[in-house]
Design a protein around this nucleic acid. Sequence first.
DNA 1: TCAAATGTTTAGGTAAGACTAACATATTAA
DNA 2: TTAATATGTTAGTCTTACCTAAACATTTGA
Lengths: 222, 222
Amino acid sequence: MITASVENYLKAVYYLQEESGDVSTSKLSELLKIRPASVTGMIKKMAGINLLVYQPYRTIKLTAKGRREALKILRRHRLIESFLVEIMGLPWNRVHQEAEKWEHVVSDDVVERMAQLLGNPKHDPHGAPIPNKHGAVTPSKNISLAEFPVAVDGIIAEVDDKNAELLRYLAQNGIRPGVRLRIISVEAAGGVMTITVAGKKRILSEKAAHKVYISPRVGKQP
Amino acid sequence: MITASVENYLKAVYYLQEESGDVSTSKLSELLKIRPASVTGMIKKMAGINLLVYQPYRTIKLTAKGRREALKILRRHRLIESFLVEIMGLPWNRVHQEAEKWEHVVSDDVVERMAQLLGNPKHDPHGAPIPNKHGAVTPSKNISLAEFPVAVDGIIAEVDDKNAELLRYLAQNGIRPGVRLRIISVEAAGGVMTITVAGKKRILSEKAAHKVYISPRVGKQP
DNA sequence: TCAAATGTTTAGGTAAGACTAACATATTAA
DNA sequence: TTAATATGTTAGTCTTACCTAAACATTTGA
């Protein structure tokens, strides 16, 4: 049975698989804030229902079924976030937590109804790509602002959605998907950078910069 | 802790209290499809957190807090139903089941946002009154169609929302809140009645008639 | 007043998942 | 190539949040 907890593990496994290629007990443990022993137990359970391939001491891999389920949940999550912002007018930084709850209870066809009302959006309010109904995602090869070159114009593609506090802060500084941005200078020692966002000068911490992603295609030389 | 299960008990207790005045273990057991022994256990737990007053072998009563919580859930449930019909375009007979899941996860302020989007409706799609933010309800003194006089015009006020099958059937026959209706004749032996709904003649089972309520005020003599 | 109906207690079960401590395997660095 | 360190697994418990059957207690009403 795919419980809410299993769904959360699936999201985490998928995320780590995308992020770093290999998924380990310890990474899951850290991400989910669950002790390694418990993670092993759950992983075995999930392998038992064919959501992932597991051999002791080896890296964990999603099966085709597991990947399908993971993308399904991601789709729900991101459509719900979009719905909450676009239709219900919730602030950008609140929708993640709310979607974390909704994603486990909203019926499939109600999710599809949301998609329809929204005009089948390709990205959620943070710029993350929404998998389509068949589980296809266009893997965004966005560049973290922390690795983006200085003095080059870029368009913000995505802003990580986990931390409501940070999101509020970024939103207040005009940092949202679609906005033009340029790094003026980096003070590596101080852990900050000076940028312009939609023409205005801002100081941004390195920590925050890691959560902001720039679209690679639309970057232009100065 | 008010779990989803406690919320369901609260709804049931409130419902029975309205319905018949006194709430007993056996009635709860029957309504919730949970064995009497289990109901006693849960009732004790709920009394422990001050949701209801309980003394062994005596009838169960909601405390002020319990009543407040029950009305809060009822408000959520009915607002969500309205939202699903009005904003999301779900069919009338599907919203009850969906709302049963949503009501336990949607945040308070998101529920209020729904209310606002809907223009603070007073009734849900089945005609049931929606308690206001402070837990006030206008107790509808509607008359079941099974007790309604013959040859008197009435306006449908409410249609019970539990059974999707029955709702679909009633909707197909034009039986919805707001529609004008009149009983032509009752064949008690056959367990059916002949009625006109918005001018059209229909046959209705007694079972179905129990689920349809007529507004008392707008009844007119022939 | 006493049987039937209703309600409660007791003792135990289940599902779903988390935890600690001890043990096993891998990885790395000397 | 062998330790030492890091990582992962097993075994055994615990928790939460219910639910159940069976035996017992109380109330009710014929």
